[in-house]
Nucleic acid binder design. Sequence first.
DNA 1: TCTGGGGTCCTAGGACCC
DNA 2: TCTGGGGTCCTAGGACCC
Length: 431
Amino acid sequence: VLFTGSEERAPVALVDCNNFYVSCERAFDPSLEHRPVVVLSNNDGCVIARSEEAKQLGIRMGAPLFTCRTVVRQHSVRVFSSNYALYGDMSARVMETLGRFSPRMEEYSIDEAFLECPRLSGACPMDWARRLRAQVARCTGIPVSVGIAPTKTLAKIAARIAKKKPGSAGVCELAAHDDIDTALAGVAVDAVWGIGRRYAELLRRRGIMTARDLKGADDGWARRHMTIQGLRTVMELRGVSCLGIEDAPPAPRSILSSRSFGSPVGDPAALREALADNISTAAEKLRGRGMLASAVQVFISTGGHGPGPHHSASLTLDLPQPISDTRELIRRGLAGFDRLYRAGVCYRKAGVLLSGLHKERARQPVLFGCRAADERSGRFMEAVDAINARWGRGAVSFAAPAQAVRAWRMRRRFMSGRYTTCWSELPLARA
DNA sequence: TCTGGGGTCCTAGGACCC
DNA sequence: TCTGGGGTCCTAGGACCC
């Protein structure tokens, strides 16, 4: 099915937080205003958020920190490690505020949401967007851009225009009766939602350079070369809605936990620890969703950079019955690791993927299984989760001493406080 | 010296079934 | 000489998103 829905569809709004991670840091540290600020990926590896001032300095998205050392020093760029406790909580506050503005909303990512524009008597969507924008700023301190259009793909473009075009004051509407083509002609094809690097290359070779060109692309060609999703993108650009607002997100199909190491690790005991730590995290997430996994995939990798032999390997283990017990998942996962590990190789990353997920309530008992043992396991993990919820992550942990400082632990040299979720790190107000 | 993490969807091709 | 047709399920790989 290419598209669904009625003729008279309400316009869609995309609300996008500006430079979200940087804005979170700024909300608690006004000295960061009007200065270049960047936030780094885990392990302080790459730049993943930049203030406008940092963009002006030519710092690229995804640039490894070591490649920007000079500009950082010369312009006193403020650098932060990523602080997901803070960003996650700030995101929840933004979403809660947005929820008051529409009965239908999809939390699309940590810093974006699609909202159905409510039908307002006598008020235009632009006024609604301005009020929403002011309210989010007042309640959270986070600046947002709002794009309004007949389809999600066009709303993404409108939000981009709202953010970039001088004088738009953070809001932009591409209404059905407007001259949308002129706006689309100013948007490079690789800026369209759903068009990544590979497709952009393919399209440019065919002379399709802008969103407007893509809108006029041949349907059959798009279907053949960019799958059904590519065709949907083309239709959405034409104002035909193919993507609805998913206000009840489907249950996840897999849960992944993986981390690069602070420094390379060759010692199998340390690798097992790191893997056990990832499995713990994934299993906790699994139980938090009330789900069970029926397969566990473990992987280790050296990455493609640096000297020494490179090695990447993964192994999927099917479980005899769906489980969520951390101990059993670790036991299975480590048995898999032992088959993957090569002596003398320095690894940079390890992780686990839980798949074949089912709701716990839908579990089918094993014919010759032991119900009492399953119940004991369930109560045991409940107790562990309760203790960790109360006393902090890692209060109880498996197979890895929680306090030890180890080579595989993440580097986070520029961490700000957990201002909103940790009593001892609340910001101080001075008289 | 130093390069993130967590997801989704789609397709092709092979195994297997009747 | 001549060797079917229709389907499901699974996996790997490739594309995309933030």
